[in-house]
Computed example of a mutant assay.
Amino acid sequence: MTIVKVDVFGLSLPLIEPFIVSYDQYVDMPVILVRIEMANGVFGWGEAVPDQHVTGETWHTVLQILEHELAPIVIGLNPFQIEFIHQKMNEKILGNPSAKAAIDCALYDLMGKITNQPVYQLIGGKARPYLTVPQVISIKSPNEMAEDACRIVNEGFSTIKIKVGTDAATDIERIRAVRNAIPNEIKLRVDANQGWDRISAISVIENTKDCLVDWYEQPVLATDIISLKEIRRVSHAKIMIDEGICSTHELLNVIQNRSADMVNIKLMKAGGIYPALAIASIAEAAGMPCQVGSMVESAIGTMAGAHLAISRTIIQSNELVGPLMLSRDVDSVLFKGDVLQFKELPGLGVQVDEMLVAELATYQKTIT
């Protein structure tokens, strides 16, 4: 039961509309897909969606790291050697979490197919019956964001997350416009993506106290956990850390400093499902609720996150929104209203359209 081949594909998936956050904007989503094949022909799919502002990787660097450093490691190994493979990847190269996530997710897809089980059954089973997914609104004018919010509510979504992180005054207008446009029972979450400093963050949070915001996410720079602690101390609402947590070591530092109420786990930051489980366990020990976030992944990364999210009680929310933002995807992800549907197939449950991958790929390498 050994791995004999790894295929690496680089492509861009088109977005329905540009996605704008505080530090960048995207007209399409560059992704890297990995296909790991066994000697008996069984194969698994994984995905990397790097973000140079968060993971320190680019599309080009991930392609090179996978081809020359990480993919060769798994040749000849058993896909169930997940601990050993992560150890070897970490010994080979520091960081590069989304590249490692692509390998990790493909291994879990393989393990599920070999055992004829969905991945969630391999990591604890369903901790809840279903997952509800929000819709995310990127940075626009306050009026445009309010219009988007109305449309989303009419489409049946019960939770909205808005991107902010420009100047404080306009961000206050954005939050107010969206809250005024939707019923109070619709949950509202705010993500600054590191866009504020400490004073601006406190000002925005104080001036939107009546807007019923569930939590404010990553208000300041990822490394500034001291400011995050001060913001949390004076905030009426919960503070979530996202870009500031990529590993268990960083989470321990945040817990010790009491800098956040919640943590956003992303497979692309953590290095895949296996290390994400460790982050969730440490957060659980500290009583810190978790969310499984997204880098706007395709069906592959989205369903990998979904299997993780449904398997742990401490993971209380998710933002598995990639398929809702893409105009073309490698497989369909089914939603019933705002509930994500599991296809109950082995592995990740994704049936990749390999013809679409071949059509869109501008880079392809095979490692044997």
Rank of each mutant, 00 (worst) to 15 (best):
L360Y: 15
I241H: 04
D331I: 11
K343Y: 13
S200K: 09
G95F: 03
D261Q: 08
L221W: 10
G125S: 02
A201H: 09
V42Q: 12
L228W: 04
D167L: 07
S98P: 12
A149H: 03
N207D: 12
T208A: 14
R176K: 15
R189M: 09
I239F: 06
L212Q: 14
S141F: 05
L11G: 11
T115F: 05
A299V: 12
I279E: 01
V292Q: 07
I273H: 09
D214L: 15
A146R: 00
K209W: 12
Y216I: 04
E284L: 06
G337Q: 07
M355Y: 13
I20L: 07
A361C: 15
A177P: 08
D242H: 01
L13S: 11
P97D: 04
V350N: 13
W196L: 03
I162T: 05
L221T: 09
P14G: 12
S203Q: 15
L33G: 07
A358L: 14
L221K: 10
N180K: 12
D353W: 14
G287Q: 05
E69R: 14
T115V: 01
H60Q: 10
T166C: 08
E144A: 04
A222N: 08
P79E: 11
A106E: 14
K100S: 14
V153M: 06
D28A: 09
I314A: 03
E185H: 03
T58K: 00
L188C: 01
Q364D: 08
Y26H: 07
D109W: 06
S158I: 06
G287L: 09
I265L: 09
F342V: 03
L63P: 00
Q52L: 02
T368H: 14
A192L: 10
E217N: 05
K5M: 14
I231K: 05
E206A: 09
F19H: 15
R174T: 10
W45R: 10
L212K: 13
C211A: 12
L320E: 00
Q364L: 12
G347I: 10
S200N: 09
E155K: 12
G272M: 11
V254R: 07
F157G: 01
S138N: 01
G95E: 02
I137N: 10
Q194K: 05
E17W: 11
R328G: 13
M262A: 00
F80R: 03
M29V: 10
I310S: 04
E57H: 01
A101G: 11
D242N: 02
K163M: 12
S317H: 02
L212D: 14
L70Y: 14
I314H: 03
L131K: 01
N264R: 04
T223I: 05
V352A: 11
